[in-house]
Amino acid sequence: MKPAAFAYLAPTTLAEALEMIDRIGDDGKILAGGQSLVPAMNFRLARPGTLVDINGVAGLSGISGDSARGISIGALTRHAAFHTPPFSGPLADLLAKVVRNIAHYPIRQRGTFGGSLSHADPASEWCLVTATLGATLHIASLTGTREVAAADFFRGTFTTALQPSEILVRIDLPPLGAGWGTGFYEFSRRKGDFALAMALTALRIEGGTIREARLGVGGVADRALRLAKTEAFLVGQPAHAETFAAAAAMAQDSIDVSEDIHAGADYRRDLLGTVIRRALAEAAA
């Protein structure tokens, strides 16, 4: 199918883009990578009256920082920018590992980091990364820039804290320096398909004991979830299979899992435990 008709605007500066979306309001939609929006338009499920294409806006892409200090990611940075770790260290390695699970190679050439977050698909890998690691999102509007914690940004399926007059411009990921181990496990029907369940974790282990923990899951509920209670449980525990199984069971009990044609609630809850155990085991290895 072909999309419904729309008007097209292509600003070249952020100020211009903000002015446009402020003027257009609800009828407008920002076009970044377009890898989720355009299929929805081609189904005529999404029918924006105006598209504001920000691909030509200067200064919105690029990666800076490092694993030890944290990474700052321009919202228009393409997924493919992470195909090779942008620098050394556990955080960059984790991003390079995760990105291989985002759809497929050509999709990753167009799709953007900020676009994924703004779209807020419950099975988005970047949503999981930002939610789990506690990213800070920088959001611009005509009235200035505000910072929103990832935990407050994701509100539900395809729903975020973004207002129609706002653009996500930058994402700051906190550091994961030396001493941290990371794990990511995703299960999908075919590689590149939407996750039926996935878990992401970072552990700081000293002498076999978990000192710090980050743990989040995606694809199992209406948004990526950071599991603070389970993280708290993990800290101080020995880093072995029994601990991981207990953590998985805790998470399974606490999440009201979603259902779809590929995974009913029963199976998805079961899978949730598996992906958590496997991600934790990888981080501890």
Binding site: K191, G192, D193, F194
Partner: peptide, 16 residues
Amino acid sequence: LLTTSLADYLPPTALE
């Protein structure tokens, strides 16, 4: 019909 795209109906790829 709930399977109206190739993201829902899953023919195998080179990896399968």
